[in-house]
Design a protein around this nucleic acid. Structure first.
Lengths: 340, 340
DNA sequence: ACTCTTCGTGAAAACGTTTACGTTGCGCCC
DNA sequence: GGGCGCAACGTAAACGTTTTCACGAAGAGT
C-alpha cells in the first residue's frame, strides 16, 4: 500500500508520467523503457492506488447492484450471473441488498453515488418517483424486472407473460379446462405478468369462462390455503397453476391431505423451477427462468450504456426467455429427473 | 456529480475546511454555521466524492468478500448476513465469486488491494501459500471455514465437528449401530471436520468397529451411488449419515428404488438443512447451520480488526454453532414441518 | 490592563494518479 | 548547415477531499 508510482519512477530512472504511460499502454514510450518500467513495477509489487486513479479518471470500474431482501437460490443465481459478466470485463461488483423500506433503499442508493459507474436496480421500492428522487444524477441504470417504464432508464425483464401462456397451453394440451391460478403479492411485477399470461392464454383457448384467480403471497403456507379453497369451491378445478413453485408445493400438500390424486384428478404447476421442484412428489411441472442469464444480460446492457456515454441510443426493452419444464405433476413425461 | 465541496463553501460563505468539519461532525464549528452549511449541502444535493475522500483518508468504507463459485441457498444466506452487518456499520460490500482456479482467485484478490479496508475470504484455493503470495500487504483478513491456521489472519468456522458428533449421538440414541458415513470432496475443510465428528462420535459410543466411510462429492448423484453401494456391502447399515443434504437426498432415492423402508430399516441423515430437506419423503433429519449468522460474525470480527489497527490482539478462533433438526428420516418426531 | 487559553475559522499542503503541455534530442529535407 | 517535425520524455496542474497550522477575536485569570 505504501509503494507509489513515484517509487517506481525513481527506481526506473524515469518520471512518473512515463510510468503511467508505460503501465497503461498509452504509447509514447520506447518498448525498451516500457519493459524496464514494467519489471520494476512487478518487482516492487506496485499496485496503483484506485482512489487516486478514479479521482482523476472519474471512473471507478465498479458497478452497483441494488437488490431486494435476498434469500433462496434466485438471488445467488442472479448475483452469480452479474458477477461473472462483470469480472469478464474487469469490473467490480458492489452489492447492497435487504432494504426493509423505501427510505433505507434510497439511502443505499444515494450513497452509491460516486462509488459506481453504473447501477443495476431490482427492488420492490424502485418505482418511478423513488428513482427520480434518489437518482438525480444521470447515472447509467438498468432496471431488472421492474414495472417502471421510463426512457430515462434501460430495463430488462423475464418473459413471465410468455412463460405463463406456455404453461396454460401445455395444460390445455393435456386436456385440462378448469384451470385455477394462484396469484402472488399484488405489488409484484412478475406476478402481474404471470397473471396476464394466464388470463390471455385462457381467453385465447376459449376458456374465458373458467378464469379463476385465488390470492396468495408466494409463501408455501398461502399455497396450501389456496389449494384447500380450490377444493371447497363450487366448481372443482382439474388443474391448478401457481404463480411460483413454493405455492405449488403448498398446494400439493393440501391436495395430498385431501386425498386428491395428482395429476389424475388435478394437475399442478408452478413457476421458477427452484431446485426443490424436482424432488417433491410428484415432481412439479414448472417454468424455468434462466436467472444467471438475466443478470448477465443486465450487466451487458449496463456496460453498453456506460461505454456509450450520454448519447445513449434508446435500446428496446430486453426480455429473457423462459422454458417449460414438464414433470409428473401435470401428467407429462418426467423429462428432468434422473430416476425417471 | 459535479457539485463539489467548493460549491457548498461558496454558497455558505465559508471555507471548504469548515464545510468538511461541519459535514463530518468533527466539531470546531458553531452549531449555527453547521446548520447553515448542512442546509446548503442538502439544497445543492451535495454528495462527497468518495475517491477524493479515501485518497486522503486511506479508508474506503468497503470490505471485500472473496467467495467460491456460489450457488444455492448457502451463499445467498452468507451474503445476506454479511451485507446486513456491513450496512449496519455504513460499510459497502464488494463481492467477487466464482473463481475457476487459484490464479483467477489470486488476480481477483490482488485487484482488491486498495479497494477495500478488509477482506473476507472463503475459497477452496485459499491455502497458506496462496494467501502469502497474494496478500503481501497487511490487509485485515478473516478466513471463513478455512483449514488454514495462521496467526496472520483471523478465522471463523462452522462447528462442523460438533454438529456431526451431535448427529451420531442422536442416531445412537435411536438405537442405530451400524452407521455409515458418506464423505464429500477431500479438499473440503467442512467435510473433514464432519468426518472427524463422525469418527470420534462413533469411537466414543463404543462403535469404532462399525466406522465405514463411503466416498462422495456433495452431488445428489454421488449420494445415490453411495446409497446403492451401502446396500451391496457385506454388512448392511441401519443408518446412513451423509456429509450434506444433497447426498442424503440422493441416498433416499437409492433406498426407495431398492424398496428399503426409511427409517424403519435404515435411517438417513444429512447436513446443512437446505430448504428442500423438509420436503423430501420422508423429511430429512439434518444439522442446521446458521449461515447468515456466520457471515455476520465474520464481518464483525473483521471490523474489530480494522478498528484495532496493526496492534490487533490475537483473538481466539471463533466458531458458529449448529443445531440438530430431527425429522422423520431418522424415526424421530417430525418437529419442523407444519403438516406433521 | 495585560497576558494566556480557547475557540472558530481560513489558507494551504497533502494524498497518488493522469494528462496537457513543454522541452529536449534526433533525423530529415531543403 | 540550419530550420523543421517528430518521437520520447519530463514538469506541473488538476481531481476533491481532509487536516495541520496559523491567525484573530474573545473571554478568563492575575
Amino acid at each position: 500500500m505504501s509503494v507509489t508510482i513515484k517509487d517506481v519512477a525513481r527506481m526506473a530512472n524515469v518520471s512518473v508520467a512515463s510510468v503511467s504511460r508505460a503501465l497503461n499502454g498509452h504509447g509514447g514510450v520506447t518498448a525498451e523503457t516500457q519493459k524496464r518500467i514494467r519489471e520494476v513495477a512487478t518487482r516492487l509489487r506496485y499496485v496503483p492506488h484506485n482512489a487516486a486513479r478514479s479521482l482523476i479518471t472519474r471512473r471507478t470500474q465498479t458497478i452497483g447492484a441494488l437488490l431486494p431482501d435476498l434469500h433462496g437460490a434466485f438471488f445467488s443465481e442472479l448475483i452469480r450471473g452479474i458477477d461473472l459478466a462483470a469480472r469478464a470485463r474487469g469490473l467490480y461488483l458492489l452489492v447492497s441488498s435487504s432494504h426493509g423500506d423505501a427510505t433505507e433503499a434510497a439511502i443505499a442508493l444515494r450513497a452509491m453515488q460516486g462509488r459506481v459507474d453504473g447501477l443495476l436496480v431490482m427492488s420492490p421500492h424502485a418505482d418511478r418517483v423513488f428513482l427520480d428522487e434518489s437518482l438525480p444524477i444521470v447515472l447509467p441504470t438498468v432496471l431488472i424486472n421492474s414495472h417502471v417504464r421510463s426512457e430515462r432508464h434501460a430495463a430488462i425483464d423475464v418473459d413471465d407473460y410468455g412463460g405463463a401462456r406456455a404453461m396454460v397451453e401445455h395444460l390445455v394440451a393435456q386436456g385440462r379446462r378448469r384451470i385455477v391460478f394462484i396469484a402472488g403479492p399484488e405489488v409484484n411485477h412478475d406476478v402481474q405478468e404471470r397473471a396476464r399470461g394466464y388470463r390471455e392464454g385462457m381467453a385465447e383457448a376459449g376458456l374465458g369462462e373458467y378464469i379463476t384467480v385465488l390470492q396468495g403471497d408466494f409463501s408455501e403456507e398461502s399455497g396450501y390455503l389456496a389449494g384447500k379453497r380450490a377444493l371447497e369451491g363450487a366448481m372443482r378445478p382439474d388443474a391448478i397453476f401457481a404463480a411460483n413453485d413454493m405455492m405449488a408445493i403448498g398446494c400439493l400438500s393440501a391436495l395430498a391431505n385431501a386425498g386428491v390424486r395428482v395429476p389424475d384428478e388435478i394437475a399442478v404447476a408452478g413457476f421458477d423451477d427452484i431446485p426443490m421442484a424436482r424432488y417433491v412428489s410428484p415432481p412439479l411441472t414448472t417454468v424455468r427462468v434462466r436467472i444467471a442469464e438475466l443478470g448477465e444480460a443486465a450487466l451487458e446492457r449496463l456496460v453498453r450504456m456506460i461505454d456509450a456515454g450520454d448519447d445513449t441510443p434508446p435500446e428496446p426493452r430486453v426480455v429473457v426467455g423462459t422454458e417449460l419444464v414438464v414433470r409428473a405433476s401435470t401428467g407429462g413425461h418426467d423429462t428432468s429427473t434422473r430416476k425417471g
